[in-house]
Each structure stands twice: as C-alpha cells, then as structure tokens.
Amino acid sequence: MPETAPNVGLLVTCLVDLFRPSVGFAAVKLLEDAGCRVEAPRAQTCCGQPAYNSGDKRDAKALARNVIDAFADFDYVVVPSGSCAGMVRKHYPALLADDAKYADKARDLAARTHELMAFLVDVRGVEKSDARYEGTVAYHDSCSSLRELGVHDQPRRLLRTVAGLNLVEVPDGEVCCGFGGIFALKYGDISGEIVRKKADAIESTGADTVCAADLGCLLNIAGRLQREGSGIKVRHVAEILAGMTELPPIAEGRR
C-alpha cells in the first residue's frame, strides 16, 4: 500500500542558508529518498536563537511566531540542526506559553518538528545510506542534539552503513565545542579555548574527517582546525549520508 508522501517543511536554518546551502540540498535529498515531499518556505528566516540567547525576548517571540506561521501547513518540519530543532521543540512552547493566539500553535509545531537525523531514523525508519565515503570519520554530538533532543545513536547508525566509512568516537564527546552562537563572538577568548581543546580531541582520534549535524559547531570546529593548519576535513553529516561531497569541505578553498 503506497502511503501518501508526507509534506515536509525544511527549516533551513539561517547558518545553512547563508554559509552552506549544500547542507540544505543534502537534507532535501535525504528527505526525498525517505519518501517525503519537501518544500522550503520563503517566509522563514531564523528561528530566533540569537535574540533569545541575548535576552531579547520580544524579538525572539516575534521570530517564533513568524516560524510558526511559515510552517503551519506541513505534516512535519525537519531541521538540519539540533540547536534550531531544540529551539522549536523545547523553547517555543515555553516562550509563547502566555500568548493567547500562539500558545497552542507553538505546542503543535513543536510536536511536528524533528531534527534531521532523528526524523530519518525514528520517524521514517531509514536504516541505511546508499552513499560511499572513503575515510575515517569522527562524529561530533552537538549539545542540543545530545541533551535537548536525546539524539545520539541515529546519526551513528546511518554513518555505519556508508560504504568505505570507518566511524570513530571523539574522547570526551559529550563536551561542548564552545560555539554557543553569540557566545563565540562576545566571549571569543573562552569560546576559542574550548574549541582548541575540542580540536585536540578530534585530532587525537586519527580521523581524517569530522562531521556533525549542526552547522554552528562545524563552522567553529572547521575554523579552529583551519587555523591550526590541520588537514582534517569538516562536513555536515547530511553531506556524507547524501553522498554529496563534491563541494570542498567547510573552510577549505576550491582546488
């Protein structure tokens, strides 16, 4: 019995929109391969975390309402980022709890929203990737994926099915990379020190590639590895799982 393809709204995230559109297209491919119809509504901009984390609650609420309206008509909303998915799933309902018009809508959206890896494995039952990737790959857990959403096994299960890929664990993997959005700019010394240690931990694995499901972490880690002159390649996990690795890794130039 052919099930009707669910309508999935892709919450692209502002960082993917701006810095790495390929991640968005890799996510689209993975979702389409998993039998979904995908649309990326143009009314979306950002989930509002920069305002929310700066203490600007008024703007955070306005942006949350914008996202809620933009994704009102989808069966599911899928996000290639743990922190933005966590924002919608965990924080929107709290943020708009007192909003007569949007409190229910926020809870409804939260229930329909999923982080990409969790959606593929838990909701769509995807068990394997058809991609090939030659290399030793470390997977970095973003704090939001790990602690807000409990995503841990899903990306690893899929990565293990990629032909040619050898998956390794990063020591102290549950420790933050130091990104934290605005934190990385405002408290650059501290953020830089944290990512220095993270880069050391990644290098200690002997991996030639590190991937994660959050572009924020990846920009941070790639920026640090690049500054150190490390040759480790940095990619979003969706790029690897979708077999879309023609583009140079994050922070590396075109050859």
Partner: peptide
C-alpha cells in the same frame, strides 16, 4: 574579532539556500 582571534571564519559557499 572575537571569532577570528583564535580561529578562521569559514567562507560562505556563495549564494544563499533560498
């Protein structure tokens, strides 16, 4: 500067997703 003190800023791919 807060960012680039200790790490490089990865360049955007060029063009937005939208």
């Amino acid at each position: 500067r807060g960012w680039t003190l200790t790490r490089d800023l990865p360049a955007p791919e060029g063009g937005t997703f939208q």
